[in-house]
Simulated scan of single mutants.
Amino acid sequence: MLTILVTGATGNVGQEVIRLLLNQNCQVRAAVRNPDTATEILSVHPTAGFSDHSIDRVPFNFTNPATFATAFQGVDKLFLVRPPNLANVRKQIAPALEAAKRAGVKQVVFLSILGADRNPILPHSKIESYINRLGIPATFLRASFFMQNLNTTHKEEIKTRGELVLPAGHGRTSFIDVRDIAAVAVRTLMEDGHSHKAYTLTGGEALTYYEVADIFTAVLGKPIHYTNLSVWNFIKQMRDRGLPMDFITVMVGIYTTARLGLASHVTPDVEQLLARPPLTVRQYVEDYRQFWL
């Protein structure tokens, strides 16, 4: 039986990957900073709860090499998510990848980002390159903007002010639901034939944030407006909310990509891999509507 280690296990994608893996013939191991806290988070997954006894939770910290040996012991495959606060790939990510190779991990499925193959400055691009240099068979999932960012990072502004505040201009974004990303991830982990491949994961449509706000308005039954901020005003608002500058910089990069029209690309990869159309923004808002009411 395969043993699969999932990093980012308490995040949006990681939780969904674990939920789907529990229905597969494999041993699921969640790599978490604090197993006690993780137990509470994983047990209240918004889609479905987890059995306390079905997941092996192991302490793991990318910046603490003392946690590597136990986490990787006996692991066949690794689902890799870069922690948003770690940008120095050589110092903060590479040692864990080297430990994975020493432990005999046979495949890495890495949650990368749309455009990582074209922008070597992105940390995701550097991680892809490092995995290739190590020679570990890998699958890169280059995902577009997560719909679920709208019920996490932007939840309060939508819920309390009826406003979506972003510096994305009139650009279109091919939003993807993390449930689709997770379904693709599980398929590439459980099936043969996906090593040494990269998939560009998008939704089936590219929308402006004005159109997204209209969908929210229709589904929630209350007016939601898109406020198209300048980059500098957006940075100021995020700093006023107490968000760290590293995180804000990544957000600005994502929304600038949208504003310039570089996030509108729609691919058939999700539909081809899952044999069904990607979930739509409207379906996402309907399924998650309790977050904004």
Rank of each mutant, 00 (worst) to 15 (best):
Y130S: 05
V17I: 13
P46Y: 04
I121F: 09
Y284D: 06
K126H: 13
T200V: 08
P123N: 02
R133K: 11
I4M: 11
R90M: 10
R241A: 15
A48F: 10
T202G: 05
P46R: 05
V6K: 08
V58A: 03
D52N: 12
Y130N: 08
I121A: 15
L279C: 02
L189N: 00
V266Q: 14
V28A: 11
W232V: 13
T200W: 05
A206K: 07
Q24V: 13
E16W: 08
N34Q: 12
G169M: 05
V231T: 14
G135F: 05
Y226E: 14
H154L: 11
D76N: 15
A183L: 04
V32Q: 14
V178D: 03
I254A: 15
F60R: 13
H265M: 11
Q290N: 13
G49Y: 00
V285M: 14
V108T: 09
V219P: 01
T256Q: 15
V186I: 14
N34L: 09
I4L: 13
I55E: 14
Q27I: 15
G221M: 08
A258M: 12
D269S: 04
G74M: 04
V32S: 06
A66H: 09
P83K: 07
R241N: 12
G74I: 07
E205T: 15
K159T: 02
A69L: 13
L114K: 01
A31N: 07
Q107R: 15
A99T: 03
N85G: 10
T217G: 07
A103E: 12
L207A: 01
I121G: 07
R259E: 02
D269M: 09
A143T: 01
G204M: 13
V105W: 06
T47R: 11
L150W: 01
R118V: 01
A185E: 00
M238Q: 15
Q107Y: 03
D36G: 12
F145S: 06
I248Q: 04
S195K: 00
R133S: 11
R118N: 00
I41E: 07
L279M: 06
V75F: 02
D240I: 00
L80P: 02
G253K: 03
L141R: 11
G49K: 11
L274C: 07
F60E: 07
V6W: 04
V13M: 05
Q92K: 09
G203L: 02
G193S: 05
W232Y: 14
V178G: 02
F140P: 00
R161S: 09
V105R: 06
K159G: 00
R172A: 12
G14K: 08
T267E: 10
L262P: 05
M147A: 10
N119R: 01
L134I: 11
A96C: 10
I131F: 06
P65Q: 14
K236M: 12
M190P: 12
P278E: 10
K236P: 01
Q283C: 08
Q15P: 11
